[in-house]
Design a protein around this nucleic acid. Structure first.
Lengths: 197, 197
DNA sequence: CGCCGAGTTGAACTGAATCAAGAAACGTGG
DNA sequence: CCACGTTTCTTGATTCAGTTCAACTCGGCG
């Protein structure tokens, strides 16, 4: 089983030759997960990062009222983890579930340590990931505070056009913070507007 | 002008003696800001972090519809910056305004560099700040997705009981994502409930 | 004293949720 | 390859939380 995308991803983000780091990358473990199975469940301690080689993951929580909130969709070439749980060693509030049959790279603390020892600019890279994450969370807050359901939907399809085709709408709804019925109506509305023009 | 709180804060978070780092801290600059004046305005590049010695700052944005959204309140002993703008060198979307007459410590990139050279565990400390920030943003998203206005208000007064007394309610409302009238009604409702019991 | 910004209250309105029912799409086994 | 059951999506009727707009109160402060 080859470490195709992950190797390329890491090498390019670290400005390193693939050859130079392939031995390090080779030492990390891969996992095949079937659609519907979990890489993390709420109340477990998250002690891995997950890089998606192929397939699609979804990270979500379930609130006290029993409602699902999708935190993020994680397609190929993306990375996901519960930073809060990993860093502070707290039980996670989130589920990470395979939305399609997927192949992922598991990245644990030892592995991170190894990386940061062997590769000087690894810390800088990780820092960049953290800052990206913050930007993205902040943007989502801005949208939740200031945009209507329709605006949030339009923003979503602009940012992640392919996701819509790969998951049930009800999950997109739970990402946007609206009900499935609500999303259905938003879409109907937009379809009508486009038709009229 | 002494660097009281900042020195204590940094020393304790870095597990260092105050004496040991006081010379470094002494080299950073202080600023007095009057109530209403700005440390950062939208479209400027943010190139400082701000540590509040005394007083209270507020970070907020103004959306396309002209509505203010309060991102955070920043009282004594807290730190604020626009990570997105600093790290990616992008124009900021935010205002940082003094809500009371305040004294702040300015922390610029040179200063950070100096710190990370002289103090081995500075990077770790900064990392912790980033992770805290992520946790806090994530929690806010959870609340916006899953909690009613009343629930968000109750959470707010539990977390930041003093803030309510120091700023106009309209700003708290813009933090919670509701209108000032809406907040007024939430409070009335809670007052009635407490009275009846 | 009179003004002014902050907060409150009421009435009408609206975006989105809820509940319930039907239609379409999907995958699984025969 | 079709038939069936399950899940997903749509649509309608109703309800509700929260907004909007406008009027009014209150407490400072010049």
């Amino acid at each position: 089983m080859s470490s195709g995308k992950f190797l390329t991803y890491i090498a390019s983000h670290l400005n390193r030759d693939e050859a130079e780091i392939s031995s390090i990358v080779a030492s990390c473990s891969f996992k095949n997960v079937k659609k519907g199975s979990y890489l993390l469940q709420a109340n477990e301690h998250c002690n891995h990062g997950f890089f998606v080689e192929t397939g699609l993951l979804r990270q979500y929580s379930i609130d006290k009222k029993g409602k699902e909130h999708t935190i993020s969709f994680v397609p190929e070439d993306w990375f996901v983890t519960d930073r809060d749980s990993v860093f502070f060693n707290r039980p996670s509030k989130y589920f990470i579930q395979a939305q399609e049959d997927s192949q992922v790279v598991l990245i644990d603390q030892n592995y991170e340590k190894l990386m940061s020892e062997k590769i000087p600019n690894f810390a800088e890279f990780n820092n960049r990931l953290l800052h990206n994450h913050i930007s993205q969370l902040q943007e989502r807050i801005d949208l939740l505070l200031g945009a209507t359901a329709k605006e949030r939907y339009l923003h979503f399809i602009k940012m992640y056009p392919d996701i819509l085709l790969r998951v049930p709408q009800t999950m997109v709804a739970s990402y946007l913070g609206i009900t499935p019925e609500g999303l259905s109506r938003v879409r109907k509305d937009l379809a009508l507007k486009n038709f009229k023009k």
